[in-house]
Design a protein around this nucleic acid. Structure first.
Ligand code: SF4
Ligand code: SF4
Lengths: 159, 159
DNA sequence: AGTATTGAGGACTCTTTTATCCTAAACTAA
DNA sequence: TTAGTTTAGGATAAAAGAGTCCTCAATACT
């Protein structure tokens, strides 16, 4: 199982791209979707959730689009996750039992609890500006590599 | 999103219970399912996967059931996960991109990679015997608490 | 042999996630 | 005002996950 839902991953990718593109103007969702190679309709739905949570401002019509409601530096990764997938990931127990960690913790409890704290800290620490600058620095990518891209990469590797 | 699929969680719970019950005799899946409050049919399917992977031995007919093919001490949690959910969890990247960590790692790569190693180590370290003995020592539970159980617990807590 | 028990495995249903499509509403610009 | 653009949001479809049900094959016991 994936850690994050696809919606959440798409949302994060879009947010990072938005942080790269700059925070001043509204960016059209269609453009973002094209650049990320995603369905524009689907991405619209996802970003709507971020808008409803107050992370984004949206504007209709020409020159419309979405932009951050706060500086990218202040937006932590966990806020995107919380808006789309919720915080379950950081709160739920490994074995899916309820009422946990209170009276009768399960065998894994102690180690698991430490781990979720680490995970949460990771997501609470990373902000969009930092992630965006990493992408810039290292020429990193946000799009899925297509089969062709991978072939291309392997070819270059062999040289 | 949950870390592990429900099938996987059920498989782990069943495995821990089996380790508690003892490794000598075949245990009937129906009994295990009842004790864990799960659908017997569904659990049968799940344990079949463990049998096919060689983790369990199964035996049909009266006195039949399943038992570990090796001592519980030697069976690590990750083997159960690998048999049911696969190792994707420990190998996949946070942003769901393919061909990662090779030429063009994504923004999160470094921190994320460290984290998956930690997670994997946790699952590789814990064996069924240890988990089972933890349960025994502390009177822990493997069943989901029903609403009634939770009410009961809160009542006791108030006293 | 006959019968009851138990896992194997296929068919099917239900739910959630993922994705697509269409229309409405808000907006810009000419 | 009109035409075109862009988000909002509902309806629908496709795919995957979760769960149920039924039949078959293997086994033990009488
Ligand atoms: S006791 Fe801890 S590890 Fe166990 S189910 Fe509860 S929260 Fe999860
Ligand atoms: S570079 Fe690392 S974090 Fe990024 S998608 Fe690949 S494996 Fe995941």
């Amino acid at each position: 199982m994936a850690l994050l839902s696809k919606s959440c991953v798409y949302g994060i990718r879009a947010a990072i791209l938005m942080a790269i593109k700059g925070e001043r103007d509204y960016l059209s969702i269609k453009d973002i979707a094209e650049e990320l190679n995603l369905s524009a309709h689907f991405l619209t739905k996802i970003l709507q959730q971020l808008t409803q949570e107050g992370l984004l401002l949206s504007h209709r019509g020409p020159k419309g689009g979405v932009k951050f409601s706060r500086p990218a530096r202040e937006i932590k990764l966990i806020e995107i996750v919380a808006a789309i997938d919720g915080l379950e990931l950081f709160e739920a127990c490994a074995l899916g039992l309820h009422g946990c960690g209170t009276a009768t913790p399960c065998p894994l409890h102690e180690k698991w609890a430490k781990h979720t704290v680490l995970l949460r800290t990771l997501f609470e620490t990373e902000d969009l500006e930092k992630l965006a600058s990493n992408v810039g620095d290292a020429g990193l990518r946000l799009r899925t590599l297509s089969q062709l891209d991978i072939l291309e990469f392997n070819k270059n590797k062999k040289k």
